[in-house]
Design a protein around this nucleic acid. Sequence first.
DNA 1: TATGAATGAGGTTTCATTCAT
DNA 2: TATGAATGAAACCTCATTCAT
Lengths: 209, 209, 209, 209
Amino acid sequence: MGIYERKQREKEKRKREIIDAARKIFSNKGFNTATIEEIALEAELSPGTLYLYFKSKEELHTSLSIEILKYLADEIQKVVGQDISVEEKIEKFCDVFIEMYEYDSNILINLFHLQSGETLKNLSDEFLQQIKTHSIMAHGAMVDVIQEGIDQGAFIDEHPVALADILWSSYAGVVLWVDSKKLLNSQKDFVKSTLKTAFKIIIKGLKKE
Amino acid sequence: MGIYERKQREKEKRKREIIDAARKIFSNKGFNTATIEEIALEAELSPGTLYLYFKSKEELHTSLSIEILKYLADEIQKVVGQDISVEEKIEKFCDVFIEMYEYDSNILINLFHLQSGETLKNLSDEFLQQIKTHSIMAHGAMVDVIQEGIDQGAFIDEHPVALADILWSSYAGVVLWVDSKKLLNSQKDFVKSTLKTAFKIIIKGLKKE
Amino acid sequence: MGIYERKQREKEKRKREIIDAARKIFSNKGFNTATIEEIALEAELSPGTLYLYFKSKEELHTSLSIEILKYLADEIQKVVGQDISVEEKIEKFCDVFIEMYEYDSNILINLFHLQSGETLKNLSDEFLQQIKTHSIMAHGAMVDVIQEGIDQGAFIDEHPVALADILWSSYAGVVLWVDSKKLLNSQKDFVKSTLKTAFKIIIKGLKKE
Amino acid sequence: MGIYERKQREKEKRKREIIDAARKIFSNKGFNTATIEEIALEAELSPGTLYLYFKSKEELHTSLSIEILKYLADEIQKVVGQDISVEEKIEKFCDVFIEMYEYDSNILINLFHLQSGETLKNLSDEFLQQIKTHSIMAHGAMVDVIQEGIDQGAFIDEHPVALADILWSSYAGVVLWVDSKKLLNSQKDFVKSTLKTAFKIIIKGLKKE
DNA sequence: TATGAATGAGGTTTCATTCAT
DNA sequence: TATGAATGAAACCTCATTCAT
């Protein structure tokens, strides 16, 4: 390994540390409330150093989001090729969502920051392209599985893209809604069980007769 | 109409103008990014004037959220007593959600700001109580309808609170997710059709056999 | 009494009500912290009305201060002509100070606001002249009494102006200092007894041998 | 000197510069009228920088006041142990006061800001404790000297705490009163001579027969 | 490359003052 | 004369970003 490679690797490692710190802080505080200083502290670096690796707070957040999106897309895609029934595949999607939630319960809220008009407008083309790519891959995988179900005559004959959206929405909705109720009523976390039930009902609803 | 009544009415009207301006701005920019100056500009008032009607930016936002919550709870409750089948009632819930979305597509995101830990912590008891009351009423109405379905033997025998959560989640999820996709892909708005399909599938999933 | 006089009298009465309200509020909060709105509320008038009687917050405060100063000067002067010994006259001065303090314990702090460079600079010539006049009269009365004591051979032969300053200072000092201690240590009010003792000691110090 | 020490020293130096600037501005304008921007300008720093060293305007002012109080307490205490007569000790107290006044003629007014109810209420316990400690030390030192005089049979048999209060009051009173006269009459500064005379008279008044 | 002190623009909020009624 | 809603300047404070070391 040459000097250049080693340096490159060092740089990647440092970037990773910063992104990990950023995830923790953004997760707890949200984009606007989190400060660069807090993230730097968490990363055991100085604020100035963060700017050697990321052009701005916005870019740091976007990098983090893209990473999450990429991970999600990868996990979803892994399910598609498995030798199990379509129903089981959709259950696996549910498991992926639960896994994401258990890893970091605020990950989704972070992702939604991306969608704010202002944020997207200021995004570089490169980042925008990456987001689109990963989004399409994750979503496409689900569409494929649903199409498979329709082709097998197991699922109702609706537009598969819409059906995939419903699965995604279920994920987003349960996480946000149940989380919100939890805070308001100080109840324990029942995202997992609600998501399981939701998917069960949706699968039942998707099936013919 | 006496002078006092006229003044009172003037005051209410002004408060309404401010809340309407606030809805527009908070809707587009989110709580943190929106500025009092922008809201004042939108309301064609000076920043100082806003503080004659609302103690703080936070209180203005909370007032707005409570209003939305109250409206939602009212509309949902209207459905419960109607002389139609449970299935139709749930379809009506869907219509209420669509109506809300069409009135202001970012209304829900506004509501989610309430849930942030920091926000809830700083809320006055009075506001907190109102939020809880309206939340419980809206949610309770849905639970009642689902219970009705279970009692009639029409719906599967799951915990009705969880089932109501799934309906709410569906609303939240579709709005957020599909909206997010729309922004990213510049597609036209298909929240309405997706929400319709989602409810159709969930109703089917809820029904016995 | 003509219409003009009646109007004039009305106006004076209103001015008095405002000044009385101002004394109460300035006394409790100090010049900067007190607000026009509070004073208006106390006077049972609207903020706008205050500006019909006083050009500015500053002028209202100055008017109040001048009134106090005038009252003080009058009371002090009443003592001078009385048919009692110089010692007794100085004791009477002390009583006047105590009376002022008991009427309003923060009166003096109010007076000191006048002295701030910024305030004096912005004062109209008319007001400045009034302040000077009353100050000189009050102070002159004390100087006269002390001079009387010196002439009688009862008091030490120091510059009488300086000796009068010491009496005034004693008043100012005890009020401010003891008041300050009271707040810090939550002790009861012993301004009165301290002032009495202070004057007793100073009188003793003033006397020959 | 290591890097850490040098940095620490730099930091202390900067804090000092800010406090010095603050003294100048607070001195001229008073707490409320002085602005952070002015202080920053005086310190040749940006407003934001001040907040790296002091949490708030209030804390900056309190720090300044405590410093003054500490210095005063130290100087007063140095006098107590000296091998001179009680009379001479009290004269030395006077010299300390004069020295303070000559260093910054508005120092005392600054200290009085501390006493305002609002200020004391918002003070952190740590600061409050420091203020109390220094106050008690300074005052206690004077009480000790007076007690010494009483024990020697040189001073009249009054409550020594009250007598110490009179000395302090004399200081406060002369500085405020004479300073106020100076501003009003544009006379030259005679605080020093008046204070000297005042102490002379009080000492005479304190002595037995 | 790494630091972290310094910056300064921009946010929320207050309040003396004005002015249409 | 009296009102009080509206104004808007100016205050305090935060924090993303820069730059000398």
